[in-house]
Design a protein around this nucleic acid. Structure first.
Lengths: 336, 336
DNA sequence: AATGATTTTGCAACCGGTTGCAGCAGGATT
DNA sequence: AATCCTGCTGCAACCGGTTGCAAAATCATT
């Protein structure tokens, strides 16, 4: 494809009248090579559109410079439910690109516990960004026991020591609830994600904290748990309306849940935010276009993506485990 | 990470009492190796969780077994506008996985025309799946002139010979329009994507054909062009209502446009489908949850993803250029 | 001019897998 | 018994880049 005859360091060496090792060192900016030689060699490489052979380099360096992005696509197709995953990819891909790393999409069978070997032992990836929620704890245990380098989105499992990036869930719960209280709502429903998830628990803690600070006791009839998806939003909103029809606000643990909830509310004759104010979570791009546009807790998705990539590369380099809690903000639109 | 001492073919060779070449041939099922030897070596490899070193293999084979997925993330973050790209990834990743290929996410500066070298000349990727619509024709020209292996989603540019997968756009336009005519609509708006895109032109052709078959002339006031995104859907719907308020149906060139259009219709007092029937395009996962659920032309996204991957691998192997038109179906929900 | 120190560059082995060709062992044929 | 043929396995070179250590070149000092 590159029609010139210059394809290897040996070719450049021939043109420059030096040895391969000199060319390699010059291109890698080694202090062992004199400046005049270095400049001359680099100019020859540039003039000939020379590109280093990456498999050869990876072999000799014993390093793939590739990160595997672990999703659930193996057992369930991508859909709007994965919009958070898509949006966080922007920060990840751009950061890895800047650090000259590749990002590969890892298909992982959720019932397979040997899959990291297929990436690490083969030299296809140096580490993993764990994004899937399908059997996440199993994957985390697998990776930890295998001492495989990885970082996960979400609250760290206190049983293990590994890198994570999460949003400030407590504060998110608090901000959302304070806002709803601040606009005069009193019967605020907590539409939770999976109850076993720590971030859901922390968001509940923030919600409860804000209520108590305002002199309210949480009402168990106003607390339901599901999944972070539209279907749950629909089901839980219907259930809320059946068991606590006097609710005047909903704090949903995801935008998808919130938007689905709004549709149910509207279809059952409630006006948003007049009759029921709604707050979501994440600040996905769809929130600007929802009907009405959704007030939501922003997880600073791009920043979180950047942190996921940066901290994994940091871990690969230094072995230092970092757990980051990214600040959240409340983005006020029309639904609350 | 793999704590056993067995990490290379040389290690397996030592355990089996044979040479490296015998092990390599046995693992690769070469007919030169006797069955008894082959079985024995494979058992040893399995017992020791042996994994071949992929950089070494790629170096010696001069083949990366990696496909680069070209998106626009370099200059614009991922958002719901990229939901089609996300959903088509499922078919792509699973097909590449089955064929033992990796998929890497390629960040490409839309103003850069040298980017394929960074993947091909370096041996990081064997070919590209071109998904971005940002400066797509420039990328196509770049790849063609460079004789780089690639496949693109969309109608082929007749100036060049390269692999493509597209939906049957003419038929899609026809099906949507026939359906609207069949439920008694007469003033059907065509909400087009970018006017210069061939698939948009073909969808218009199908729309026009269906109208003429039913004895109608297309009304220029009922035809507007924009982009395949929500913002365009909003703007064009407003414009339609201003210039052709008597329209009784809309055929939008994407689900995102259609859903945005429905919101505008509803906000201006029109009932869907009573007053205005709406048909979208793609059959993204959000169409099930739109309000009302959207009738849409399905592009069989998963099948299209599978074809993209399969046909690129076929091209890499045989050099045969394949242009595929995937059949579309009309998925009838509540909006029309 | 000789010697020592420093700087610069080259040699060649290695990273791990693949494979063309040679060599060996065993069986068949003369 | 000798020879030939076939099947099986091993040798070692290669793929392209990196780098420890040695050698060569240059500069400074005596």
């Amino acid at each position: 494809m590159n029609k010139t005859q210059v394809q290897t360091i040996a070719d450049i060496a021939r043109l420059a009248g030096v040895s391969k090792s000199t060319v390699s060192r010059a291109l890698n900016d080694s202090p062992l090579i004199g400046d005049e030689t270095k400049v001359r060699i680099r100019q020859i490489a540039k003039d000939n559109n020379f590109q280093i052979n990456v498999p050869a380099r990876r072999l000799s360096m014993k390093k793939s410079s590739t990160i595997a992005f672990v999703t659930h696509a193996f057992h369930k197709d991508f859909s709007v439910a994965d919009l958070f995953t898509l949006e966080i990819l922007s920060g990840i891909t751009s950061t890895l690109y800047q650090n000259r790393y590749d990002l590969l999409m890892a298909n992982v069978d959720p019932f397979d516990t040997e899959w990291p070997y297929q990436y690490l032992s083969t030299g296809r990836a140096d580490g993993f960004i764990l994004m899937t929620s399908t059997r996440k704890q199993l994957h985390i245990r697998t990776l930890v026991e295998m001492e495989a380098p990885f970082i996960a989105w979400g609250v760290p499992n206190p049983k293990y020591n590994y890198c994570t990036v999460t949003g400030d869930n407590f504060n998110g719960g608090r901000l959302a609830t304070e806002h709803l209280l601040g606009i005069g709502r009193k019967r605020i429903a907590f539409m939770g994600g999976p109850a076993m998830e720590l971030e859901v628990q922390h968001r509940y803690d923030g919600y409860e904290h804000a209520l108590r600070e305002a002199g309210f006791d949480p009402d168990p009839h106003l607390v339901l748990y599901g999944e972070f998806c539209s279907e749950s939003g629909t089901a839980l909103m219907n259930q809320f309306l059946d068991q606590a029809s006097d609710l005047d606000a909903v704090f949903a643990n995801s935008d998808l849940m919130a938007i689905a909830a709004m549709k149910i509310l509207q279809s059952r004759g409630r006006r948003i935010p007049d009759d029921v104010a709604v707050v979501g979570y994440d600040n996905l791009s769809i929130t600007e276009e929802s009907h009405p546009p959704l007030t939501t807790v922003s997880q600073n998705i791009r920043t979180s993506g950047i942190m996921l990539a940066k901290n994994l590369l940091q871990y690969l380099e230094t072995g230092v485990v970092i757990n980051v809690s990214v600040p959240v903000d409340l983005v006020i639109r029309e639904s609350a």
